[in-house]
């Protein structure tokens, strides 16, 4: 076995050290934000906090979570992600499957370019806004879900994953009398779980993080969480107005901001470990073949 050789063992040890260091570098920024969120505002503005909270307290979390708006926003974000993933994956898979069979699909390439073109060209904000209004989607969750339902990038990825699946599988199925729809659902989907998990992750993360469309299309009481957080974190330009001392103090509240950032990030972070089992162990193709 290759991993019993001496040189491989040395490589393995070095590899583990390297990857651990890299992982550390990646976790530290988040730990910093976390430490800020648990510290007192004073300690933070005195630059005393790096990776461990100073004057540990939960005030920021209490203040943020005590906000009624926040729960509504959380619910809307979850709804948006669920709806977005379900519709998004359905459309992506449905589009990718036929396009992965260019040989049987006359005009398939033209259709593919039809999609790819929209990756690059877009009319911008104003026409989209007018469109959403004309379709009466304003202030509905569909304004957030439908415009980006088909992610072309994801679709192309899916298409390529589908193409990597051995042709024999499909042919066997078609010869058995099954149609394309059955083949897609019975054969393709089960062995494409790693790829589908990838796309689910991309779509979910995209929907969770998106804030601008919420700001433009939704009334304040219907803002999803990232939109709400965005407005809570950003300081408006105060240079021209009469500011009060309370405002000046609030402006420097990095503690509260950090708590909000963390609360806004945590739910989506939890999605990954859940999907991870699909990446770590590949599907054993041989088993399906046999």
């Amino acid at each position: 076995m290759y991993y019993k050789t001496k040189s491989y063992r040395i490589f393995y040890a070095l590899n583990i050290i390297l990857l651990s260091l890299i992982s550390l570098a990646c976790i530290l920024p988040l730990i910093h934000v976390l430490a800020l969120s648990f510290s007192s505002g004073l300690a933070v503005s005195a630059n005393k906090v790096t990776f461990w909270p100073v004057d540990f307290n939960l005030d920021s979390y209490k203040r943020t979570l005590g906000d009624a708006d926040f729960l509504v926003a959380f619910y809307l974000s979850v709804a948006r992600v669920v709806l977005g993933v379900v519709i998004g994956i359905a459309v992506t898979v449905l589009t990718a499957y036929p396009l992965s069979k260019m040989d049987s699909l006359k005009g398939g390439r033209v259709i593919a370019w039809f999609f790819v073109f929209t990756m690059l060209f877009n009319g911008g904000l104003i026409p989209s806004y007018i469109l959403i209004q004309k379709l009466h989607l304003m202030n509905t969750i569909w304004a957030l879900v439908l415009p980006g339902a088909l992610g072309v990038y994801n679709m192309i990825l899916m298409l390529n994953f589908f193409r990597a699946i051995p042709k024999e599988l499909e042919e066997a199925s078609l010869i058995d009398g099954a149609g394309h729809m059955t083949t897609l659902i019975r054969i393709y989907l089960p062995i494409s779980m790693p790829s589908i998990a990838t796309i689910v992750l991309f779509v979910a993360v995209g929907h969770w993080n998106a804030w601008f469309d919420g700001l433009i299309y939704m009334q304040k009481e219907n803002w999803p969480m990232s939109t709400l957080l965005q407005t809570m974190i950003k300081a408006p330009d105060l240079s021209q107005r009469t500011v009060s001392d309370a405002e000046i103090v609030n402006l420097t509240e990095r503690t509260l901001k950090s708590a909000k950032i963390f609360i806004g990030t945590l739910p989506i972070l939890l999605v990954y470990p859940f999907l991870q089992r699909y990446f770590v162990k590949g599907i054993v193709l041989g088993a399906v073949k046999g």
């Binding site: 904000l125 104003i126 700001l215 304040k220 965005q230 950003k234 408006p236």
Partner: peptide, 20 residues
């Protein structure tokens, strides 16, 4: 309030309303 937005998107939102 017809709408409320974030400070930095205020002008954009007004212009969008004008355009529509």
């Amino acid at each position: 309030y017809n709408w409320v937005t974030s400070g930095d998107q205020f002008a954009t939102k007004v212009r969008l309303d004008l355009s529509a």
